[in-house]
């Protein structure tokens, strides 16, 4: 197992560019099952393709809503695209609130004097 040690300002690990190329493309580094199940993730165009796919699906779902009248117990939910907008809005609100809340509530890892919370039954400690 290789473990980088340096972190950037956000606390992420800084990777050596050379290392990462090797890791990403080294043939022996990947679990054989992973190549079958998640090989497509490696493709550089995947993120964009995924985004396009999701947008298309969302537009499709929205379109169905325009033509199809749903029956709900709560009538305001019958409005076109109610669920779609609510889902989008709720998600965005939850995520974006992470910025101020993080500033407000985040303290150092050793705040309660208990930095070591890794239990003894993990592999490395045994």
């Amino acid at each position: 197992m290789t473990t980088p040690t340096e972190r950037d300002a956000n606390g992420r690990f800084i990777k050596n560019e050379a290392d990462s190329t090797e890791i990403n493309h080294g043939a022996d580094d990947m679990h054989p099952v992973s190549k079958i199940l998640f090989g497509w993730v490696e493709n550089k165009r995947t993120p964009l393709a995924l985004l396009v796919l999701v947008i298309v699906v969302c537009v499709g779902l929205f379109a169905v809503d325009v033509f199809h009248h749903r029956h709900e117990y709560l009538h305001f939910a019958e409005a076109t695209g109610f669920y779609a907008l609510w889902g989008f809005g709720a998600f965005a609100l939850a995520v974006l609130s992470g910025w101020p809340l993080g500033k407000l509530l985040r303290r150092s890892e050793d705040y309660y004097g208990e930095a070591d919370t890794v239990p003894n039954d993990v592999e490395d400690k045994q």
Binding site: L61, H68, Y83, F88
Partner: peptide
């Protein structure tokens, strides 16, 4: 049909929000 549709709308638009954010 309605239930599947609304649930998918809720979830897929939320996924879209994630991707955009």
């Amino acid at each position: 049909f309605d239930h599947i549709l609304t649930q998918m709308q809720l979830l897929m638009l939320a996924v879209l929000a994630f991707m955009l954010l």
